[in-house]
Design a protein around this nucleic acid. Structure first.
Lengths: 283, 283
DNA sequence: AGAAAAATGAAAATATTTTTCATTATGAAA
DNA sequence: TTTCATAATGAAAAATATTTTCATTTTTCT
């Protein structure tokens, strides 16, 4: 885990009384960054500057400066929980949400299986038609995905209400793909539609943030995004963004995969929207 | 990902000639640890100590010492320039998109006016009803916003097709707020609806990624998000995410502002959705 | 071209780290 | 218990490193 602490413990026996105090402090503050200066640390350890230098040398560093930098390097990516409180300004909240999103992306990169995302992309690429379903905030993820896939040149549709979802599912056939989006992985109607599709030989993909959730049992391919629920509230803002970046990467992959599309992709869509614009500003 | 290099790239435009030399060195030595002293680095960059301190401060550090430690902390994570090419795997694309999103968030924080976002939140908080409109990918942003505002306890509705948008706008009255979402800021139908609303004394807010765009003229409050279009394609993925984090921060602010709501907010929504779940998994 | 503003680097001022060295503690042998 | 050799320690000096200041240069705008 932390090489420096390990080494300190290893060499603990060789140290003098005062040097041990330095080691003790370090060992009992594994997460902390070293206080700015050697003098500060000396005071905290009830020791002296020279002792700290000796301690650093014992661990194999050229001096305190090097030890300090090395400690920073060993630091586990400290998870700064962007806890929002009632006195934050709207702008401060924006900053915290951006932070939160960034952490959520990092978690997603760790959680998602690279081979599954590739498999999902290839499945969609080869499908006759792709239908995406979700409810609540997952509905807008599904809608966003359908919108992008369509623009990328693939037949994709999304449905946000349960009736349409069932109707659309019942009209699908083999060779189609159903993508179910659900953070909880437990929305009754979505799981039901997935089960129905699967029983009829339709390929199923789920995008969910909950491991071992019901929807996973009904899915051929599972895309597991950031599973860490933020403590803020049920809005679950960042995990929502994580699901979108997964969609975005599928979409990019599809664009680049489709030789025919790639060239014209940009211009074609630009032109098809042009008449909807007040002027030539680009979307 | 190396946040420091990304930040250096982000702020590159603001730098003077000499500061850019420091940034260049850093960017072209992504893996390296910083040479021991500021003087050494000054020589390597053909710059001066003071310039390096200024550079460090620009990136948000207290000085060179802090930058040096932070660089050590970032080490080991390699920089991926978010340029997607055809040989990338789906997973690599995911990483690049996350990077891109992060940059986009940073740009948004710089572009958006803190006082405007606060004003927008307060306007919505005091409104009788809020209507959100957008087309294409902006439609799903609007839908997402309406969904969240509603859950936060405010009357909010979104419409994704132009007919409904016009009907809804014509039924609004003073005391209501119309929020127009458009990346280009030039979608005919949206601008038209905004103009109509404004002429009837309805407050208007726009969320756009294009400065000096037509929609801004029809808006009482302008929320300008990331204006830098990514070069990838017209999908404009990251700017889409930026608009969402702006929505999210408005939403959080509204939740915390509303004394009455805050307490029950989480539980209430949890419960109202419970019957829709297969089991007790939390959304 | 000329004035105002911004950027820059040399050098002074601080701050930090390292070294030196006198003092104190430790422990083995008498 | 005392003595002496050795190791450990910390105060202060010396060496380095960083930050600030400010005069000079460069850029920008008129």
């Amino acid at each position: 885990m932390n090489k420096i602490i390990l080494k300190a413990q290893l060499l603990y026996g060789d140290m003098g009384k005062s040097e041990k105090k330095v080691a003790d402090w370090l060992i009992s503050h594994p997460g902390d960054n070293l206080p700015m200066s050697i003098s500060e640390l000396a005071e905290l350890c009830e020791s002296s500057e020279s002792t700290i230098v000796r301690f650093a040398r014992r661990l194999g560093f050229s001096g305190y400066a090097e030890l300090k930098i090395s400690v920073a390097g060993e630091q586990e990516k400290k998870v700064v929980l962007p806890t929002i409180d009632e006195n934050d300004s709207c702008f401060e909240i924006l900053g915290k949400i951006c932070n939160d999103a960034y952490l959520s992306f990092e978690r997603t990169k760790r959680t998602i299986a690279p081979e599954n995302i590739a498999a999902a992309a290839n499945l969609i690429a080869g499908a006759r038609k792709t239908v995406l379903i979700g409810l609540g905030s997952s509905a807008s993820v599904a809608q966003d995905a359908a919108n992008k896939f369509l623009r990328a040149g693939y037949e994709a549709y999304s449905y946000g209400d349960t009736h349409m979802q069932m109707i659309a599912t019942s009209r699908m056939k083999e060779g189609d793909v159903l993508v179910g989006v659900s953070q909880s992985g437990a929305s009754k109607d979505i799981v039901e539609a997935m089960r129905f599709a699967k029983s009829r030989g339709i390929s199923t993909i789920c995008i969910t943030g909950t491991d071992r959730s019901p929807i996973m049992k009904q899915s051929d391919i599972v895309l597991l995004t950031d599973t860490e629920e933020t403590k803020h509230s049920s809005l679950a803002l960042s995990s929502h963004l994580s699901r979108l970046v997964v969609i975005d990467s599928l979409c990019y992959y599809l664009v680049y995969r489709n030789e025919a599309n790639r060239g014209d992709f940009e211009n074609e869509n630009q032109n098809s929207l042009k008449s909807k614009r007040v002027n030539d500003a680009n979307e």
